[in-house]
């Protein structure tokens, strides 16, 4: 059982290390052997157009998809090939695209499920309090059916639920998708706050400008390959980045 580590001490190896990760869906190859390292405490953004393989990367790391080749290690332990319920016990939490909250269950039950892997009741209660402080709206809606929440509230619930497992590595898949601008701000503020608290984060975003500016480092994916990596400055700033990869010309592998 992985001990929750927060704040994260310095590790001799990257917290997340991906080598030669290949994902296939039937005859379609979504990822062509990508490499990716994320150090403890880092916020790394993955950007790229639709179908570039961003979500597939997160799905493979979290165990939802079994990679066709390559390895994924978390704090030096191999997690590729494990079922998702095993991967989460290595301290990896995924907030899937589209939130995937349990609409038939209450907010309280959704949050309780987030703590499925934990056995320390006192710690869970304390964490629950912290998440409800972080997202006050969830405290107001605590007893309600989650399906009745608005999109922004559901996103907050999904993040809070993931945090209830006390992850060392948080994977966020398109957290701002389909939200009103005010709520997009809230999501990015939350991500920044989590980063300050020392959580290691991989952020997949369509909203590349803001993601790149927020992140310590960014990797650009295109048709299943990482075509560029670096800090916002190295990539020429967030806005330039966005223009570059959204436009047809520019990036060459």
């Amino acid at each position: 059982m992985a001990e929750p580590l927060l704040p994260v001490p310095l590790l001799p190896v990257p917290l997340l290390s991906v080598r030669g990760l290949t994902v296939r869906y039937g005859s379609v190859t979504a990822l062509h052997g990508i490499d990716l390292d994320v150090d403890a405490g880092e916020l790394v953004a993955l950007v790229g157009p639709n179908g570039a393989g961003k979500s597939s990367t997160l799905a493979a790391v979290s165990g939802l998809v079994r990679p066709a080749a390559g390895t994924v290690t978390v704090a030096g332990e191999v997690v590729s090939g494990l079922a998702p319920e095993r991967v989460v016990r290595h301290g990896v939490a995924l907030v899937p695209e589209g939130r995937n909250i349990f609409t038939a269950l209450t907010v309280a039950e959704n949050l309780a499920l987030g703590a499925t892997i934990r056995r320390d009741a006192a710690g869970v209660a304390a964490d629950l309090d912290r998440q409800l402080d972080r997202f006050p709206i969830l405290r107001d809606r605590y007893g309600q059916q989650a399906g009745l929440l608005s999109g922004g509230e559901q996103q907050q619930l999904a993040i809070a639920r993931a945090l209830m497992s006390r992850p060392r590595l948080l994977l966020l898949d398109e957290p701002s998708l389909g939200l009103a601008p005010r709520l997009v701000d809230l999501v990015f503020e939350t991500v920044a706050q989590l980063r300050r608290e020392g959580l290691t984060i991989v952020l997949v975003e369509q909203n590349a400008t803001r993601a790149v500016e927020l992140a310590d480092r960014t990797s650009v994916l295109r048709t299943g390959r990482i075509v560029r990596s670096g800090t916002a400055d190295e990539l020429g700033g967030g806005a330039a980045m966005a223009a570059e990869y959204l436009g047809e010309a520019g990036v060459t592998p």
């Binding site: 165990g63 939802l64 998702p84 989460v88 349990f102 499925t116």
Partner: peptide, 15 residues
């Protein structure tokens, strides 16, 4: 109940 509604997400949470 969680697994009945969305098995993949339930597994992500450790079910």
């Amino acid at each position: 109940r969680a697994a009945a509604e969305d098995f993949a997400t339930a597994r992500l949470l450790g079910v």
